[in-house]
Simulated scan of single mutants.
Amino acid sequence: MEDGTTIRMGLIGLGSMGRHHARVIREVEGMDLVAVADPYGDKHGVAGPLPVLPDVEALIGEGIDAAMVAVPTYLHEEVALALAEAGVHTMVEKPIAATAESGERVARAFEEAGLVGAVGYVERCNPALREMRRRIEAGELGEVYQITTSRQGPFPARIADVGVVKDLATHDIDLTAWIAQSPYVSVAGQVTHRSGREHEDMVVATGQLESGIIVSHIVNWLSPRKVRETVATGENGSFVANTLSGDLTFVANGDVRSEWDGVSVFRGVSEGDSIRYAIARREPLRVEQEGFRDALWGRDSDIVSMADGVHTLKVVEAVLESAATDRTITL
């Protein structure tokens, strides 16, 4: 599309994520929400003057340029393939599909059609994580040794059609590979089922990236404490991102030498100065839609590619396979 032309947007899925996308698409300069669809109607009342269409075919029939897909995960492939066939640029909410195999079919369809295909991993648009990635890329940590994430909290009110690994850990796997700019090569996981549902509700996963960085993820929805933290540790110290507040803190390795004989021989690090960076806090979902718009206009844009979406899903499936077989999975 030509830079600056208005993008006729369609939205399918008006549930817990779709309602936010409806608002944000209407706010983004250069986007015009012209059609919405959901076979179950508009329970959050976001359609406004637009008729609520029954399916993806009706959405395509409105002559849209691009679409946002926010239907349940098991429908992602069917809806995305219909949009690809119709020549509609598309962003699919995470994960790209229900399985990596399904995701590969979606990614291939958009690539072969020469369309912009993106996945909605909104955490990449969190101000603290964007700043962390920028500073790591600028060499401020020196060599990165380890990235750890913790995403814990109470059970979500929305009914999920998947367990905690595909619903939540998928965010951490995506953002870790993105921050490090390196894919996963191995992963191991342990899960537990404590809430009486068929899907897992707690996971602890560890892994290694191609670059040699070691990683760990703690994810659950059975904790009364809400935690959203990503920590990158390297030769110069640690970056700590609190993605609930959007804060980024740098804790430097100290250079104060210990007087105490017992520890002076230990060649480790000590705690140095801490800096909390002042960051402009823009709404991540809006940043995400602006990135999609820029990609459609042919501008430089850091959207999550469908290939990235497939890689993340392969890692997610490997975590579940590891937990089921009690062995480390090499990707």
Score class of each variant (00 low, 15 high):
P54C: 13
A138Q: 10
A109D: 08
G48K: 03
T325V: 14
S150L: 00
T5M: 13
Y277C: 04
M202F: 08
M202H: 07
G139H: 10
T325G: 06
G153I: 12
E198S: 08
G207F: 01
D38N: 15
A107G: 01
V164M: 06
S301H: 11
A280V: 11
A37Q: 00
G13W: 09
A86S: 12
G103S: 02
A70M: 07
G10F: 10
H21Y: 15
H171M: 00
G262P: 05
R299I: 02
K226M: 12
S245P: 10
H311Y: 10
R327K: 14
H20F: 11
R108H: 15
Q146F: 03
D302T: 02
Q289W: 14
S264E: 12
E288D: 07
V287D: 13
A58K: 12
N220W: 03
A107M: 08
I12Y: 03
E101C: 01
I147H: 00
R299P: 07
S245N: 08
G117K: 04
E198F: 04
D174C: 06
E143Y: 08
V46D: 12
A177Q: 15
E200G: 01
G207H: 10
V24F: 06
I279Y: 07
V187M: 07
E259I: 15
E27V: 01
I25V: 15
K166P: 04
T243W: 13
S301D: 15
H199Q: 12
T233Y: 03
R194D: 15
E290C: 10
V215P: 02
V34E: 07
W221E: 07
T99P: 05
D326V: 11
D172I: 05
A100H: 11
A70Q: 07
A280N: 04
E62T: 15
G15M: 00
E137I: 06
E85K: 15
V122F: 13
W260I: 14
R26A: 09
G41W: 14
M1P: 09
A307F: 01
D65V: 05
A295M: 11
E78V: 05
P154Q: 09
E321Q: 10
E259R: 15
E290D: 11
M9E: 04
L129G: 07
S16A: 09
A278I: 12
D255S: 11
I179A: 05
G254C: 08
V269L: 14
V204W: 11
E200Y: 11
Q208N: 03
V187R: 01
A107H: 04
V106G: 01
S102H: 05
V269G: 01
A160R: 02
D55P: 07
E198Q: 03
A177K: 01
G117C: 01
I60H: 02
V144W: 00
A157P: 03
V162T: 08
E101K: 13
E2S: 10
L296D: 14
P154C: 06
M9W: 04
I218F: 05
E123H: 13
M1E: 14
R108Q: 15
A66Q: 03
G63N: 08
P183S: 10
L141W: 00
L53M: 04
R108E: 15
I159H: 13
K43I: 13
L33W: 12
